[in-house]
């Protein structure tokens, strides 16, 4: 695993780039570890409270530990009319967790999201930001099985 300090330093030439640093950290850890947030604040010259305010503002950033695969289900209107509600129920039951939770094996975290801009093929979920199209309840087991 890469060192969080190196990751942060890698973003230093981006003026005001603390959000870029948070992304880079999440690419590695799937969330922003506390000590990394404190370090990022120091490197980018903002207060820790400010860095925390930023990290908690954006819904794609998390300061809580998450699973290996972050599944986000789109619930915006186009996906909603395409059956997102049902899909959510299926997701929750098949993963055995509620929204916001992580499976006990640390594999999946389930989150909701607003439109991810793939509304040509609703309903849509993303797994670690890769979109999966036309996810009906029927094909869901297949979709999930692809993630080991």
């Amino acid at each position: 695993m890469a060192n969080y300090k190196d990751i942060i330093v890698g973003c230093i030439d981006k003026k005001g780039g603390i959000i870029e640093a948070f992304h880079a950290l999440q690419n590695e850890f799937n969330y922003i570890p506390h000590e990394a947030l404190v370090e990022a604040a120091r490197v980018f010259g903002v207060s820790e409270a400010q860095a925390y305010g930023v990290a908690t503002f954006y819904s794609y950033l998390s300061v809580e530990k998450r699973g290996k695969y972050i599944i986000r289900m789109c619930e915006s209107a186009p996906c909603h009319v395409a059956g997102a509600d049902e899909l959510l129920k299926a997701l929750e039951s098949q993963l055995g967790i509620k929204v916001g939770e992580t499976t006990s094996d640390g594999k999946f975290t389930l989150e909701l999201t607003e439109c991810v801009g793939q509304c040509q093929a609703t309903p849509v979920i993303t797994v670690n930001s890769e979109p999966v199209f036309n996810v009906t309840t029927k094909i869901l087991p297949q979709v999930l099985a692809a993630y080991k």
């Binding site: 780039g17 503002f57 954006y58 794609y60 950033l61 607003e114």
Partner: peptide
């Protein structure tokens, strides 16, 4: 230079977008 948002619709609003590029809450 390409900068990335992080899941905030309001950052499409131009001044929120600017705040976000600056590394602030959007």
């Amino acid at each position: 230079e390409v900068r990335m948002g992080a899941g905030a619709y309001v950052c499409g609003e131009e001044t929120a977008l600017i705040e976000s590029i600056e590394g602030h809450r959007g």
